[in-house]
Each structure stands twice: as structure tokens, then as C-alpha cells.
Amino acid sequence: MKPFANSNARDLQNAVQLAQNARQDGRTASFVGGGSDLLALVKERIAAPDVLVNLKTIKGLDQVKPANEGVSIGGLITLDILSRHDLIRRQYTVLAEAAETVATPQIRNVGTLAGNVCQRPWCWYFRNGFPCYKNGGNTCFSFGGENQFHAIFGGGPSYIVHPSDTAVALVALDAKFRIVGPSGERVIPAADFFALPQQNPARENVLAADEALAEVQVPAPRAGTRSTYHKIMDREAWTHAVVSAAMMLEMDKQVCRSARVVLGGVAPIPWRLPQVEQMLAGQRITDTLAAKAAEAALEGAKPLAKNAYKVPLTKGVVRRTLLELAARG
């Protein structure tokens, strides 16, 4: 690896300061959580930071704390602890399940929630160092190339899919992200955090230079809500989602009062399906409705040359997940 310095951050302000100091010296800085993504990028010469600002040394940023009408989750919590956390498992099941599907125990033991949400794309062109949008170039090689795993929604000019499992769950949970940066703090809805390539083809989110994702605030789901994460992988584990679905159903006996349905693996951001959510609200979840919802979910999909299979696959995932979740006691 190229040489770089590791700077341990004392707190968030200090972290931002360390990054800014580096920049003022004409050096580049990256925040690092578990490092499970960043180090691979440095080894491949895709990222070239001179300073790694280590966030793991910040105390207290790895906790789940009850907050007004919900929980606040520190961005530095490991995916392992998150996925085993009692309260999260019970009330925010979709998040625990999503975290549990990430990679392997070894990665979950170091990988952080913030790092998972901010990980770079796993498009094989990007990871192999092609001069694509994500690598500072001005083309997307997947378009007209090998795009089996690329976007069927929201693509263009880049067609990556967002790689994070927890991101999909967090959008479904209507979480808010607390961001700390050089100009202070801001809190934005998860859905506004992720950015389509039309907005900025080089990045996947709205973080500005030296801004860090500090915390995730999740409102408590309403009574009667159940949620789940269903992930399709190319082998039984250790790969990103080919397609995934995060679903929350607020149920009143047999009737669905409200729903949140978000897809992963299909778009450059977690892909919310408002039309499906509306279709489900106030209805009994029957086989017919599930099938209709699945059809509606894929309306407007624009598959590329080699990923048309994602259309029937996603339909299947939506239909089944819906039926399974509705049937859960």
C-alpha cells in the first residue's frame, strides 16, 4: 500500500478537524470505520488518502440509545453488534436482518454501520480500476458491457447499484442521518442522503468533503408493525445483493394499514416503491394483491442488455416477501 498516516479521532469535531488539517497541508484524508472497504480500495490504488482519520477511537459512537420516540444508533456500531441487539431485533427487525446478511462474521465484527452505508460501489468496472464515473472518468462501462448486476431503475449516466444492505433497511425505517462537518451539523432523511448519478455521477450520497455520518435516528415503528429484509445472493453468502427487499407492514389484524417497501440491488440508491405502498395501504394482503403489487413494483424498470432477469426476479422477491411477512404472527 502507499504510505499514509493513521490519525485517531477523539471526538467528531476532532475528526473533522483532522481531516481539514490534512487538506490544508495539501494532503487528502478519508474517514475510516472498520476499514474493510477502504483498505481494499487503497490496495487497488482506487483510493489514495494520505491520512486515515480513524473514527473507531471516538467514544460512545457505537451505542444504541433510546431517543425521542425511537432509537439513535451510533454510526460506529459494528454490524455484528447491531444485528444481535435485542431491541433492534425485536422492533427494527428489518435492520437487524439486513446487517446480518452483510458479508461474513469477520467483516461484521469490524464493519461499521456508517461504513456500510458509505461503502463505495461494488461494480466490477469500478473495482477493477476502469476510468469510469466513479473513478473520476466520464463513462460508465457497464452500459453496453457486462451489466448482469447493474441497475434497472434510476440508472444513467452511471448504472451502479447501491451496495449497502443496511441502507435499504434504513430507508424503509424512515431513518434520519445526523451528519457532522466543517460547517457544523445537519440532520437529513435517509432518503435524501443517497444521490442518483444524475445528481453527481462520481458519488453515491450527498456528503460534502470532510463530512462524516455520525448517527442514525430511527423512529419507533407504530404498533402492529412487522418488518423483514429478504436478500438474493449469487451464492449462499458473502456477496452483495443481486436484489433485495426491505419491507415494513403496519398490520391491524388481517389488514395492512400502511406499508414501506424499498428495494436494494436494483438502483444506484435504495429504491423506494411509493406506488406499491399506496396499493397495500388499507388492504388485506392476498395472493392476488401480492401479485399485483409485484407487477406494480417493476413498472418503469429499464433493464440493460444483460440484467432483464432482474425483472421477474424482483417480482418474485416482492411477492414472496409480502406474503411471508403478512403471514408472520
Binding site: N6, G35, S36, L39, A40, P105, Q106, I107, N109, V110
Partner: peptide
């Protein structure tokens, strides 16, 4: 690392 399995190739020694 502190009793939990991790990939030592993907962690820095300083950490």
C-alpha cells in the same frame, strides 16, 4: 481480536 474473529489482512496493525 479481543476474542472475535476478524480478517487480519483488512485491519491495520496500528488499530
Amino acid at each position: 481480536l479481543d476474542g472475535k474473529p476478524i480478517y487480519s489482512c483488512s485491519n491495520l496493525a496500528v488499530w
